[in-house]
Design a protein around this nucleic acid. Sequence first.
DNA 1: GTGTCGTCCTTTTTT
DNA 2: AGGACGACAC
Length: 818
Amino acid sequence: MIEKLNPEQQAAVTLPAQHALVLAGAGSGKTRVLTTRMAWLIQTGQASPHALLAVTFTNKSAREMLARLSALLPINTRGLWVGTFHGLCNRLLRAHYRDAGLAQTFQILDTADQLAAIKRLLKASGIDDEKYPPREVQRFINGAKEEGLRPDAVEAHDPYRLRMVEIYRLYQAQCERESVVDFAELLLRCYELLQRNAPIREHYQRRFRHILVDEFQDTNALQYRWLTLLAAGGAPIFAVGDDDQSIYAFRGANVGNMADFERDYARGTVIRLEQNYRSYGHILDSANALIAHNTARLGKNLWTEQGEGEPVRVVEQPSDMLEAQWVVDEIKSLIGEGSLRREIAVLYRSNAQSRVIEHALFSTGIPYKVYGGLRFFERQEVKHALAYLRLMDNPDDDTSWLRVVNFPTRGIGARTLEQLSDLARERGTSLHKAAHLVGGKGGGNLLKFAAMIESMAHEAQVLPLPELIEHVVHHSGLLTHYQSEREGADRLENLQELVNAAAVFAGEENFEGLPAGRMVELPAAGQADAAGDFAAAGAAAGSDAAGAVAPVSDAVAGDAADPGAAAGAASSADALPGAADLIEAGARQGMSPLAAFLSHASLEAGDNQAQAGQDAVQLMTVHAAKGLEFDAVFITGVEEGLFPHENSLMEQSGLEEERRLMYVAITRARQRLYLTLAQSRMLHGQTRYALRSRFLDEIPEEHLKWLSPKVRVPVSSAWAGTADVASGGWNAQRRGDAYGRPATGQIAPRSPRSWASGVTVGQQQFRIGQGVRHPKFGDGTILSLSGSGQDAQAQIQFRDAGTKTLALGVAKLEVIAG
DNA sequence: GTGTCGTCCTTTTTT
DNA sequence: AGGACGACAC
């Protein structure tokens, strides 16, 4: 298996047991190295399969890793510690729910659930949601948690933040009361558990002899600490990532973790995988040249043996519609030449761009598939059914209770619910427990609902999962409701699909989102010979495995004073090799199939593509394309303001992240790459005009082939050097801001041959690329123009004051040379 | 309790 | 422009 690796890959795979950073460029065989290393560690007896911890970000990569691993080695992948950060933390918390201070039946809030919980909290606490918008509260709370901060630890001095912290505190109390945890909480709770509970921490520190991390550039502060805590017992961390593909800073990812890791742990052990097996030379060199414009890179230059291939084609069209049409015509001829539709991807920076392209594809009759949008477990009807199911396990889950208490309608109105919620609040209890306290007609209905939940919960004890779901769908009235709804057919189908998913899940005896491998049955986790492996691994590493785990069994014995834990430990103990796995026994016996399925539903929301199956052109955002590759790739909307997105220019190092995004986009292509742009496009109901992206100018001409005349407008960003300096806090983008007075602008009629359009306001003419002077902000260049009539606006990049959007009718601008 | 109208927002997204 | 959500009226 190792023969086919190149020297760098080989070196990475066979590194001795020490911390290491593998800088894996796009298409350099990153996943292969990761899985081959795991196989190598196992095969050479350095670690038993269960002494490996492999962490990914998405369920998809976890699945892929397992699949590849099982292709390399005849082992049963079930129960391996390979999963997402969240999945693994969930697993740990399920095993040690008591030590983590959680109810056994704790349930997971997805993003939407969390938002609903926050809204409910704000309402109940009488907090003005105008002043504290639920989304911002959510951001604040998650941000704090991702930094590892509990309310007490959050720095707050101004009244606004103080109040936010207070809301955070209230939210946390509400979650505790309801036995629910949000995504960030899974990680933080788990981190705290390991940090505070020495026996458990030491147990896992000994158990995991090798820690492997995928997409390391995407880790946030807490994930980094979680990893280093687990590794503190001596397990080496094998971190694989690419700083040039870090595109998730906006959601908390910290590329800096890579440099920190190198400095603090991996020191000299950095391996670069620079040979690319995916793209031809022109494509690769374009990517290299582009990304070279970023600063503070760890440094890497991709190369290929495949030859230079075809140049990157660039096309500029007058409008977004014509751009889309051009793309579709080109796709048509590619297909005519024998290309597979599924090997053609159309990428865009923002989802709003998909519409025109879809339209053009649709009217040309080319099948296509759009990625993004609602995922299976996020659908309304599925969420309703899941809410009922959650109540089976945990009737105190107020979020779920409220979601379905009157769905389908059963005469429980807002007034009744207000009474109920006040009562519950007074008594410090859940809505379910307070339900019998409300009088009147509404109260009667509440009682009926509560009784229904309890009776269903009773059924839940005896019915297998799929049957239970059918039962719930039927007896809750969801079935009848959707049968009578006009467009209920799809929803009923999805509910049936939910039953099927549960059947598959139950059949696989799945464990919170870690799929069972379809593998030759080998000795499962912790049977006799696995114990042998474990001891051998211990010996190889120069320590005494049996001795090392001894204290853990003591700890468990202490824990076992609790009847539940004792039963769990005792029953599993026979099947387990030794003390080592005792501490984890709780996880295997503690979780009902229902609870496991609910976790699965929260942690893995399912596919977000429309219809799988037929061969179709792939449409998606650049973000969604990360990790994928196609024979032919169209990157559309390569314009200033769109790509790089104008909003990114306001953020610190926003431009560099955009550039990495473009780098990711370019490196998706194997054989053919097209960059397309439009001079005008409809956005938010307005026509906007823009210049070609500065990124185009960062790619050397020799790699490009212009299929439309290249416009000689001076390079988009006259002040490119300072472009990344955003003015802190100034928010010109906000609607109706300081420049609210309507402008009296008019779009100048465009002559057929004019490429860049202009706007006339009063006596002044503005055009893209125009130099202007502002009394306060100084000199700048117009990046884009939008609107007409009453609200023409210009996005202007000032040399010293950053990029701002100004209303032309209001701002006192002077036209200067440029 | 349901349906309709108006208002708001619009970068990227996984768990 | 277009979709989602909330307020208001029947």
